[in-house]
């Protein structure tokens, strides 16, 4: 193997081999950047990556949903209180009217 390498170097010199090696490296670089560029061309920079939704953002979404549920219950309670107050108002008006009639 060493003899073959020596023969090749003595025939061409080391420089063309270096040239071909650099040529191949750069061609691979061109191929890699071009394919990577093609692949990334559809990606949007402002798209939220999926992994971001796993931990803190996911917890936040749960918290917001829980807060919304609490708000819904509070609204229902407030509506009941409002209805009770209206009933009290009607009852007090009836009492007042009856007391006037006497």
């Amino acid at each position: 193997m060493d003899g073959l390498a020596k023969e090749a170097f003595s025939f061409t010199g080391p420089f063309p081999i270096l040239q071909v090696a650099v040529l191949l490296i750069v061609m691979y670089g061109i191929y890699a950047t071009a394919t990577r560029g093609q692949r990334d061309s559809g990606a949007r920079p402002d798209t939220v990556p999926q992994w971001l939704l796993i931990a803190p953002a996911h917890d936040l979404i749960d918290d917001v949903a829980e807060m919304a549920e609490h708000m819904r219950r509070q609204t229902a309670i407030l509506e009941k209180i409002e209805a009770s107050l209206m009933a009290c108002k009607v009852a007090l008006e009836l009492i007042r009217d009856e007391s006037r009639l006497r």
Binding site: V26, I30, T33, A34, R36, G37, Q38
Partner: peptide, 9 residues
């Protein structure tokens, strides 16, 4: 090489 990537991406 970076220019190639940028042109496509």
């Amino acid at each position: 090489l970076i220019s190639i990537y940028r042109a496509f991406a």
